[in-house]
Design a protein around this nucleic acid. Structure first.
Lengths: 117, 117
DNA sequence: AAATTAGTTAAGTCATCGCTTGACTATTTG
DNA sequence: CAAATAGTCAAGCGATGACTTAACTAATTT
């Protein structure tokens, strides 16, 4: 029965924070040191270090020390876990949507928020 | 400068919980009612309802009431936000990896855990 | 060698999250 | 109509998360 990679939830958690997502965005353009990453954020360097540690443990980022600075880059292999999960599931979703489109239109679906009366 | 969709962080948060990820897995196979989703979990129905609400607000799941039961299906449009973000960024990552592969091999990168001495 | 730079760790604080229980609202079914 | 079914909401509780500051290490510069 359809099962997800043990690292997937951790990856999602790592990417669920806006600051960490912004870090991944920056690293998408180019590798950066810890302080280069920290510069634009209104936050202590220590906080950024912690975010990078979360990203690294999750498999979103790889780092390596060069002298006293630490270079950070995207962990493409780690990110592939997310990509693979998505592409694998997408196949199922498409099939379902074809079957259910008619029903959804007929029933005029409402979100839980704008409650059904 | 490379920016992410406003719903992305929320989507990641929704998918960061193992229970919610498991719910998405189940719904990947077939649409289900709230109690059908809840059945295999060792958790109150109320807890599952809360999880489904999180997934729906995030755009991971759509629901609609049929009588006294609520049908849940994957929100393929919402999930596309995640997919698109990933595929857009992947392009950048690949290029970087090509440039950095040599440096990484030479420097023998270490994780923050197994600390550099 | 002393001062600066880059990063790391630890401890503590405050907010949010995941869950529970209990009361309550619809919708079916007997 | 009464009882069961399916789901919802609210309050509360313990655990986790996102910071902070302060003290510290290691590499570079001067």
């Amino acid at each position: 029965m359809l099962n997800f990679h043990p690292k997937l939830a951790g990856l999602m958690t790592a990417l669920s924070d806006p600051t960490r997502l912004a870090i991944v965005e920056k690293l998408s353009l180019t590798p950066l040191s810890v302080s280069e990453i920290a510069a634009p954020f209104d936050m202590s360097l220590a906080a950024i270090v912690q975010h990078i540690q979360v990203l690294e443990k999750a498999g979103a980022v790889r780092t390596f020390k060069q002298g006293r600075t630490r270079r950070c880059i995207i962990d493409t292999a780690g990110m592939a876990v997310l990509k693979n999960w998505l592409t694998d599931r997408e196949r199922f979703w498409q099939g379902q949507f074809d079957n259910l489109e008619a029903i959804l239109d007929a029933e005029a679906p409402k979100s839980i928020e704008e409650r059904d009366t």
